[in-house]
Amino acid sequence: MHEWALAEAIVEAVCGYLSKRGVNRVASLKVAVGELQSVDEGILRFAVEELFKGRGVEVSSLVFEKEPAVFRCNSCGRTWRLEDLGIPEDAREAIHFIPEVFHVFTRCPHCGSQDLEIIQGRGVYIGSLEL
């Protein structure tokens, strides 16, 4: 249930933003969910909704948007998608907790370097917030 920790972070950040403005209502909140972290969107949504309820914050529209993971090799400059990486199944749980550990389990499919960069789709962040 690591998703609860991520949900708490989202709710804490939004509540911090709202308290500075003296409001407790959000018209629209978009949360980007990076493909690499393999977050369970259902649990994350449930946790975020429950935590907002507990804080007395009303969110009219809560949208979770999946962001495909894209990587770049700092050695050869090529880019590719998650499915091209061939990450072993038993490494996925470690990556779920700390996405950067994917560096341990994979290399650039073109040149073999481990000097890789996540261009997008790493983890969870707040895409947009409208009051």
Binding site: F97, P99, E100, V104, E117, G123
Partner: peptide, 20 residues
Amino acid sequence: YTRGEALPLRGAGVDDVFKE
């Protein structure tokens, strides 16, 4: 999480690991 192996990372990655 790395099973005891080295994790070659640049600054932005180190920052992300710290926060996570």
